[in-house]
Amino acid sequence: MATTLNPTHVSTTRVARRFQLSRLWQLAAAHLALLLYTALALFPIFLVVVNSFKNRRAIFAMPYALPTAETWDPVGYQTVFNNANFGLYFANSLIVTIGALVLILLAGTMASYALAEYRFPGNTLLGLYLALGIMVPIRLGTVGILRLVVALGLADTLWALILVYTASGLPLAIFIMTQFMRQVPRELKDAARVDGASEYRIYWMTLPLVRPALGTVAVFNMIPIWNDLWFPLILAPSENVKTVTLGAQVFLGQFVNDWNAVLASLTLAIIPVVVLYILFSRQLIRGLTAGAVK
């Protein structure tokens, strides 16, 4: 990119120097903008985490200060750990989220491959049908879903949640992935067909080529699944299948005026998601850049 200083356009070194100077300014401005926005994005989270370690009076009197020897008070965390089975809740959330993600990616890529690859009667209609689900509030179907779950004997199991989240994640997944599937070069697939590969084999081959879509869909679906409150409350409220978000909610209700406990449980709820996100985000970024083959 440094070669943009083409001699035919930039004739003297003075101009070149001025150009570099303005480039420097641009860089500084860009960094400033990014830094400011990053600060804006992180400041609220910082406030919560920092204050969760302080005593109640310090939270109100000095909200921005880091905890000091006098204001240090992990009482919020003690309350949280004494009152809820967060380890189990965390494992439940992890099983549900990963289970649903695997199913969404598998069923979603298969369907969007078929929609993007084959021309068959009703293709467009089916695509639209598969998108209908994101156009109504899913809570509308609560009772119907619960009845189905009961009929299948899945009430109060993690399977109920996995299946519901898979169903609710599929429309967006198929919508995004179909767009990406269409961009896979036809020559590659036709070449494979000439070599006698089965359609299933060709589908499997295309998956690495749509990795950005896989990463994007995984991240977008992971968030609402992990954070959902409604379906755990309705479909799996028992102690042994409770998810971490539902657990934290019971908590927030219980100690809504105990800011230590509130801030501590908020912090505890934030950390796993952020860790999970950072793990996935490597995949996401790698997927994004790998997809942008030049």
Binding site: A107, M110, A167
Partner: peptide, 26 residues
């Protein structure tokens, strides 16, 4: 062809049973 049905079936079945049917029913 059979493979199109195989590709579409899992998504369509789960989605229809757990979303479309309850939603339309309501």
């Amino acid at each position: 062809p059979i493979h199109i049905i195989v590709f579409l079936a899992p998504a369509v079945i789960i989605y229809t049973a757990f979303m479309i049917f309850p939603l339309l029913d309501s």
